[in-house]
Design a protein around this nucleic acid. Sequence first.
RNA 1: CGGGACGUGGCGCAGUUUGGUUAGCGCGCAGCGUUCGGGACGCUGAGGUCGCGGGUUCAAAUCCCGCCGUCCCGACCA
Length: 467
Amino acid sequence: MAKSVLTPQSEDFPRWYQEVIQKAEMAENGPVRGTMIIRPWGYAIWERIQKELDERIRATGHKNAYFPLFIPMPFLEREAEHVEGFSPELAVVTHGGGSELGEPVAVRPTSETVIGDAMSRWIQSHRDLPLLLNQWANVVRWELRPRLFLRTSEFLWQEGHTAHATWEDAQAETLRMHEVYADLMQSVLAIDPVLGRKTDTERFAGAEATYTLEALMRDGKALQMGTSHNLGQNFARAFDIGFSTPEGDRELCWMTSWGVSTRVVGALIMVHGDDRGLRLPPALAPAQVVVLAVRDETSDVCQRVSGELRALGLRVETDVDTHTGFGRRVTDWELKGVPIRIEIGPRDVEEDSMTLVRRDTGAKESVALGSAASVVPETLRTIQAELLGQATARQDEMTTDVENVDEIVSGDGNGFMRLPWVDVSADGERRLNEHGLSVRCLVAPEGSVPTTEGAIESSLAYVARAY
RNA sequence: CGGGACGUGGCGCAGUUUGGUUAGCGCGCAGCGUUCGGGACGCUGAGGUCGCGGGUUCAAAUCCCGCCGUCCCGACCA
């Protein structure tokens, strides 16, 4: 057994996290504090997420567009709660073209305001509704304590913005996208987050209701993986986004917004990663299989097997860099989390076989050279399913029911602690915050998302330490 | 902004307390050879304004002053 490449998770989880990002060549710090250089391997993972999510966003009838990075300050100020929520982390440009600007402009922390301004012109009639837009963009929220992927001053995301004729339509949209996110997490990222509603203290600045997806990382801390907001008429009022009804009355639109960011890459690392590195779900992995030549003389066979697998539509890397030691290459691919490694050496070729190794379990088996096309896809499906199964089981194990806030505050603060929301309330929430804990979300007793006052009253609070 | 450190080849560090040869070490990098089924090894080699500016001194990475920058800990967020 070779000595471990990474600091074990059990020894120092934050250090493990940093090391795995560095050694898997995913990302590094940019020259300005809080910025991130996303390296090809990390970016390829993000692009996979983008592709999967973009397809789902289009499939639900949304169109992509692009709005400016710079936002006039007065825009942000129009919605009182919105500006208050974002002003501490706002980056403001004061100079341009060599001189001080008369009107400073903000670098977007999110785009509700610019998009709202445009929508107010684009929407005139009920026939213009619903208006379903999405944009892929970078945003800036100045961070004092940055962490790669989890919290950076600039990050990449997708933000959806929609306008509807009724509250019911907006609510349906909010919940629909919440579900789209859940599907992405489960079927692609192999993570099964808790779907719930944010308390008023954690609600998005300017929203009427915020719905969230919260997952537990391996160290027992929670991470918000996505949010979907019902904005009510708050922004419609601030930006005068109205429409004429069929009856000829003028009414304000009901709006939503929803987003998923590069932060989910952090979740992926911390949910599935182990002491050997990343473990990527096949649906997401930029390379699902790496075919590795043990010796130079087996390179041709490797190329052939890779070709067969690519013909099936699989993403395949071929590693015939025999100049580098075998062990070294094995370790590197494990760090990068490629789900299946196929090793082909002289011994395999002699027996007309190859060695197939699963990254998730480490299990090795010798299979016939000709069977790649049948064995590999099957194994990829198995890995995808088992990663989700493991992650879900671990999260369940780390979720405990508790009696009251005292019990939480006196405990070790690990995992989700669940109790009736009425037993927490605003006062209990403050106490939790003082102890570095927070109510991550509220879930209705039957497991659904609470949408009414009554459902909130009877809901369960999920409490955890959070990233 | 308050508290604690740190700045020396690409990266990680030693050397600074007590000034004194040619500023070392590990990793990485280049060449050659032997290796190759779980981070290989040997030999050879390249690579340094010791954060910046000033001062003290025969002599400064080392002492003094100033500046700059970075990291860690305390009030927000996807």
